[in-house]
Nucleic acid binder design. Structure first.
Lengths: 126, 126
DNA sequence: GTTCATGCAAATCGTTTGCACAATG
DNA sequence: CATTGTGCAAACGATTTGCATGAAC
């Protein structure tokens, strides 16, 4: 199955690349409507899945609640505000040795890890 | 609102304490039915939420579309198998200094962090 | 006896999917 | 023109909720 160009998908990628807020599907949908006023949420989800398969974006999954997406595909950690739930990319190097260290300690063959830090963000801390 | 004793809730907690598989709500429901043959999924969810509020259990919300639960409320890291999705408690000390270190580096007031390691478990690695 | 918990079913939320039509190459 | 993408609505899976009845205290 060949992937064709689509103005909607291009715009979704642009939107994701233009923001740091790690949007939800509906957020993208709301923005997309400004330009494609009849577009549907289904289109957003379909294109998000295509972009994921293409490795152009990443999904941040939180169990049964909603997913969030980001175009920053470099490996990085997140800070998540306990109050407003904003997600912020952390500009700290990921610990490449950790997988090896824990592999040795546990005997599981660890390929990658994910870290989230929690607390109150700048806006919520007062 | 006062919380009363309930045999169903007691059993759910027992079930969670007796297993290491980090069950889903339906898994608990299936077990609960053996004893309370008319019980409902709603009851399971309601009681899980009460137990969560009481701090007697924890919810594992990431990685998939549904939540999983555990009665091990001590702070610990998880290993998650990429193939069979089993979740295994890691018996390694959590890094208590990390919150402070990252607080200094980022200037966010970090209260806690969570780490998940991914790879293939014993059964799936071959 | 008052109030909380349950069972049941309907409702909700995020996401996926089937189908007829529109856009791409 | 052959095929993929879209809009729409219906379907889906996990979880929540409203309501009448049952259990706890």
């Amino acid at each position: 199955m060949k992937i064709r160009k689509s103005r909607q998908r291009e715009r979704i990628l642009e939107l994701l690349r233009s923001t740091e807020i790690h949007p939800t599907a509906i957020w993208l949908y709301d923005r997309l409507k400004d330009e494609f006023f009849n577009c549907s949420l289904g289109t957003v989800y379909r294109n998000l899945n295509i972009l994921l398969e293409q490795g152009l974006i990443k999904k941040i999954a939180f169990g049964s609640t909603f997913d969030r997406f980001e175009a920053n595909i470099t490996d990085h950690y997140h800070f998540i505000c306990d109050k407003c739930n904003s997600i912020i990319d952390l500009n700290i190097p990921i610990d490449k040795e950790l997988n090896k260290i824990i592999t040795k300690k546990t005997n599981y063959n660890i390929k990658r890890h994910r870290v989230e830090f929690f607390g109150l963000c700048e806006k919520c801390k007062d």
